[in-house]
């Protein structure tokens, strides 16, 4: 999978928040096999040590770093945060979140497109957290985005793929744009479903961090994403309205013992 001309080996992207300990976090990253991890920026107290060793720990994983603008509610706020992230993390990749509502955490599509246009022009590789709306998606591509990240369900809700038909339409409408399901995933089966319908990758965080055993769950998601992708490439059989016997009927014995055919 290529994201902004970078070859990424795994189709799972993993968030780094809410883990019970730094060790569980790094073990989960390793167990998942993910190639990209997301990070953020928060206020630092004096003598805080620059993230308290968190940043060197993540650098040691070897995963590509995708900083986010989580919590930003305006285009300008997201733009400034992106510029700060680019300097600290040393990457032009940015997961662009512009939140339109504090309760639903749904994207503000207008501010998102505005911020995307300015950031793309400034040399950022923008990964926009968006809805499945096709017109917003087209505007984001017009703005210079080369990856789109529609939500499966609201952030942290674990509701899976809420609008499968709309996601199918998005896949069909943008056959050559890398599409990453971002947010709302709870179970590996949901991640596999996203991959089976042809999405290029899945980004999740809470489903692993808040699992009973985050490391085992990270491994489960890695396998589910791989299995789902393999299934997509293999080609699922078309569904049928009626039952069709899988064992041949031709040559069936007539034992004269009744039974209607």
């Amino acid at each position: 999978m290529r994201l902004y001309d970078v070859e990424i080996s795994s189709r799972l992207l993993l968030g780094t928040a809410q883990y019970p300990s730094p060790l569980v976090l790094t073990d989960a990253i390793a167990a998942s096999g993910c190639g990209v991890i997301t990070v953020s920026l928060r206020r630092e107290t004096a003598n805080g040590g620059g993230g308290n060793g968190f940043w060197p720990l993540l650098q040691s994983t070897g995963a590509h770093i995708l900083p986010n603008t989580a919590g930003c509610h305006s285009a300008q706020e997201a733009i400034t945060t992106a510029q700060m992230a680019r300097e600290v993390f040393g990457t032009n990749w940015i997961k662009l979140e512009v939140i339109g509502n504090a309760d639903t955490l749904q994207p503000d599509p207008f501010a998102l497109v505005e911020a995307a246009r300015i950031l793309c022009a400034d040399g950022f590789a923008v990964f926009p957290y968006t809805t499945e709306d096709l017109i917003v998606a087209e505007r984001l591509l017009d703005a210079g985005c080369r990856v789109l990240m529609p939500w499966g369900a609201p952030i942290g809700s674990g509701r899976g793929l809420r609008h499968v038909d709309a996601l199918n339409a998005m896949r069909g409408h943008f056959p050559s744009v890398p599409l990453i399901i971002d947010a709302g995933i709870r179970a590996p089966s949901q991640a596999a479903q996203a991959m089976e319908i042809g999405f290029d990758a899945v980004l999740l965080n809470t489903a692993v961090a808040k699992a009973g055993d985050p490391v085992a769950m990270a491994r489960a998601f890695g396998q589910a994403v791989g299995a789902g992708r393999l299934a997509f490439e293999a080609g699922l059989m078309p569904p049928r309205d009626m039952a069709v016997p899988s064992t041949p009927v031709l040559g069936m014995a007539d034992l004269g013992l009744g039974g209607l055919r």
């Binding site: 968030g15 780094t16 928040a17 809410q18 883990y19 976090l25 997301t38 990070v39 953020s40 920026l41 928060r42 206020r43 630092e44 805080g48 620059g50 993230g51 968190f54 940043w55 993540l58 900083p67 986010n68 989580a70 945060t81 700060m84 600290v88 993390f89 952030i155 947010a183 965080n205 809470t206």
Partner: peptide
């Protein structure tokens, strides 16, 4: 003035 540092994120 805002002073920010790397932090865990989703």
């Amino acid at each position: 003035v805002e002073v920010l540092a790397p932090m865990q994120g989703g």
